[in-house]
């Protein structure tokens, strides 16, 4: 067990902190959903929703 822990520590040393961060699929999932939701969907919905309605 001790060997396994040491192996894990060695692996983490080999992987840069940056790569350890992008190894987290749930962080990537958050970014991958938040970016288009904010810049494409919400921004677009706000623009369309704020259009004045044409008089009949």
């Amino acid at each position: 067990m001790a060997d396994e822990n040491n192996t894990d520590e060695r692996e983490e040393e080999k992987i840069s902190p940056w790569q350890q961060m992008i190894d987290n699929p749930f962080l990537l999932l958050f970014i991958g959903v938040a970016m288009p939701t904010v810049f494409y969907t919400l921004w677009g919905v706000m623009e369309i929703a704020s259009l004045p309605v044409a008089p009949y």
Binding site: I31, G32, M35
Partner: peptide
Amino acid sequence: RAAYLLYIFFLQLASA
């Protein structure tokens, strides 16, 4: 991997 990261950030915005 950085190129894939660009996909995560920007690819879906191209729907516009």
